[in-house]
């Protein structure tokens, strides 16, 4: 997983899977990397082949953190299986999902 600030946005890339095994780590590292001034979080899901309920929990936790700062979480290019999980749990209504 890579974390890099871009303007007012923290970009998270290279997540192979987001599940029970690593969701807490992803959440905690992302929060730690949120320097003052970073309000939005972009999670690049193009390399993410798997997402489960624990991964969703981490994304929601980050969503709350971003909202507290007046920002939002965007999920970039989710693979179809991951997108299906988001839709199934109605969380595509919560996150901004950027496709393509």
């Amino acid at each position: 997983m890579k974390l890099e600030p871009q303007g007012d946005t923290l970009r998270i890339t290279d997540i192979a899977e987001l599940g029970a095994a690593n969701s807490n780590v992803v959440r905690d590292q992302a929060r730690a990397a949120l320097a003052p001034g970073l309000i939005n979080i972009e999670v690049d899901l193009s390399q993410t082949s798997f997402l489960d309920s624990c991964g969703l929990g981490a994304l929601i936790a980050l969503h709350k953190t971003a909202c507290d700062r007046g920002g939002k979480v965007s999920l970039l290019r989710p693979q179809s299986a991951v997108e299906r999980v988001l839709e199934l749990t109605r969380l595509h209504r919560v996150f901004k999902i950027v496709k393509g």
Binding site: D52, S53, L56, G57, A58, I60, V85, L88, R90
Partner: peptide, 19 residues
């Protein structure tokens, strides 16, 4: 049922049931 949108847990059984 699904938990509230802001809940960080409680979706596991819903996912199993749904798929």
């Amino acid at each position: 049922a699904l938990p509230e949108q802001g809940s960080e847990s409680g979706r596991g059984l819903f996912i199993i049931h749904s798929v």
